[in-house]
Amino acid sequence: MIPIQIPNSDESLNAHWNGIKTIFSKANWQTILDWIEEKELESILGNSKEKQIKNLILASPSLLRQIVNKVGGVINTEDAQDHNLGFIKTKYKSFTGREEHLYRPSDLVENLGIKVCPYCNRTFILSTKKNNGKIKRTDQLDHFFPKSRYPYLALCFYNLIPSCSACNHIKDEQEIGLSPYEIEKADDVLKFEWKPKDASFSYPKGNIVITPKPNPKTNGQMQSNIEVLGLDQLYQNHDDVVKELLLKGKVYSKAYIKSLVNAFSTLIESEEEAIRLITCNYTNEEDLGKRPLAKLTRDIAREVKFIK
């Protein structure tokens, strides 16, 4: 799992608000304001009626947790009626099915500048535009707090997680511990480790076991993500990547990497670039969202001393 780092957060947030607010009617706005007053959310969203709905739609991850802790979630049909904001979930359908010239999910993902699913870091989520202007999406939007239980958060910016179809399907309506928006650095929450599967292992060939190991400081939240998303099982499919990196660690010494830079100085500008060519991936923290399996590559590259 990797963090979502928003390049221009103010612009992305304003674009989301300006796009979403057009979906609501005046009656919808009043219903939301009445709900905020009924649930006594002024301490979280502010006393200004003009800003309360905007503050709800753009609530930070920490504020979303405060709202959820105060309001709770839908338990049954009667409870859903008591919330009075089930219509927001319906409005979400309007958002995902909007005309091409209006703000839509592909715009949200594009504004975030993320190319790979932050949940699994295994799959590209890039969209393509056809000649007729229609968008062919490979991304989906997961609701960190499921919209079936928290319909009032169905259109909140930080509750919408760009994801691949596999992760969105696996997570479904389950809740997990950490949002990608709550992670500052991937290394703070997760580290990939490997070990021989049995005594027949011959370095770097043979069967190995890959383990996504959560940081204990996450207090079980990252472990919840791993279990719900099935990351421990999914990453067993990438043992070939690990074994290749282990082999490259033996073949490409620090001295050899330096010699490559010196020999091809007009093509390779730095050791960092040479390492990217060797590992076939990005290894810097800020680049983990650019290519699949970058976090796995980073952890193994550190082990074989390509990076610190």
Rank of each mutant, 00 (worst) to 15 (best):
90 T>N: 04
27 A>C: 08
91 K>S: 08
83 H>E: 11
78 E>R: 14
85 L>E: 12
80 A>V: 05
39 K>A: 12
101 H>S: 08
53 I>Y: 05
85 L>C: 13
16 H>K: 13
10 D>Q: 14
22 T>H: 09
106 S>I: 07
36 I>S: 05
116 V>K: 00
89 K>M: 15
32 I>M: 06
89 K>Q: 15
109 V>C: 01
66 Q>V: 06
114 I>E: 01
29 W>F: 15
14 N>I: 15
71 V>I: 10
22 T>I: 15
109 V>L: 00
60 S>P: 01
30 Q>V: 09
38 E>W: 06
119 Y>C: 07
60 S>N: 01
25 S>W: 14
104 R>A: 12
34 D>W: 14
101 H>I: 09
108 L>N: 03
66 Q>W: 10
76 N>I: 02
77 T>L: 11
78 E>W: 12
109 V>N: 02
74 V>N: 01
103 Y>V: 05
57 I>D: 00
12 S>P: 13
80 A>M: 05
78 E>Y: 13
89 K>T: 14
71 V>L: 03
24 F>E: 05
10 D>M: 15
93 K>L: 10
104 R>C: 07
52 Q>G: 04
53 I>H: 05
87 F>Q: 02
48 S>M: 10
81 Q>M: 10
93 K>H: 09
8 N>S: 07
90 T>R: 06
15 A>E: 12
35 W>H: 03
82 D>M: 04
112 L>T: 02
97 G>I: 05
107 D>K: 12
39 K>R: 13
78 E>I: 13
72 G>M: 06
36 I>M: 08
29 W>V: 14
109 V>E: 00
30 Q>H: 06
113 G>P: 11
32 I>P: 03
57 I>F: 03
84 N>P: 05
56 L>M: 03
51 K>N: 13
85 L>H: 06
69 N>C: 05
32 I>E: 02
14 N>S: 15
89 K>H: 13
102 L>G: 00
62 S>W: 13
73 G>S: 12
94 S>W: 09
88 I>R: 01
27 A>G: 09
10 D>R: 14
29 W>S: 10
81 Q>D: 12
116 V>Q: 02
88 I>F: 01
90 T>Y: 06
65 R>K: 13
114 I>D: 01
63 L>W: 04
35 W>I: 03
65 R>F: 10
9 S>I: 15
88 I>D: 00
30 Q>C: 07
19 G>F: 02
83 H>G: 07
72 G>D: 04
59 A>I: 14
10 D>L: 15
116 V>H: 04
57 I>N: 02
76 N>C: 01
51 K>Q: 12
42 E>K: 08
78 E>Q: 13
108 L>A: 06
45 L>N: 10
21 K>L: 05
10 D>V: 13
17 W>V: 03
98 R>N: 06
11 E>K: 08
40 E>T: 09
80 A>I: 03
31 T>D: 11
